[in-house]
């Protein structure tokens, strides 16, 4: 089992059920999860992280006020080293390409399997040579 006990993952999504789902899905990895519910909160949260480093961000695309695309632009400028994964219900053709082009490191389309999520996180946090 993937052990992420030393990792901090930030989840940005306005759907609280979804946040709960992720929390339950990643429970066994022991990753430390932080939740914010829109883009503005996400930016504020990241700005306040002085000592503690966020290892991974899971970012929804459709959110109130600021879309995931706007947020990723800011993150990639300010925190170019932190991997960001798009988690979106836009499952249309081209969406994946659009995400990767916009600076996301990975793309996960809702709905997804638990294993899928875990594997992608593993890949982003433990890149193999």
């Amino acid at each position: 089992m993937l052990d992420l006990s030393d990792k901090i993952i930030l989840l940005v999504d306005d759907d609280k059920d979804f946040c709960f789902l992720i929390k339950m899905m990643l429970k066994k990895t022991q990753a430390q999860l932080k939740f914010v519910y829109n883009g503005e909160e996400a930016i504020n949260f990241m700005d306040q992280q002085v000592n503690r480093k966020v290892d991974l961000i899971l970012l929804d695309i459709q959110m109130p006020l600021l879309s995931g695309y706007t947020v990723i632009e800011i993150f990639k400028k300010k925190f170019p080293d932190i991997p960001v994964m798009a988690v979106t219900a836009f499952g249309m053709i081209g969406e994946r390409e659009k995400c990767l082009k916009s600076g996301f490191d990975e793309y996960l389309s809702k709905p997804f399997e638990e294993l899928n999520l875990v594997n992608l996180i593993d890949r982003l946090l433990n890149p193999r040579a």
Binding site: F18, L21, F90, M92, P111, F112
Partner: peptide, 18 residues
Amino acid sequence: MSHEIRTPMNAILGFSGL
């Protein structure tokens, strides 16, 4: 439709799995 259906489906399938 894709987005609106996927969102609840995500929860339904996800929690069903859990």
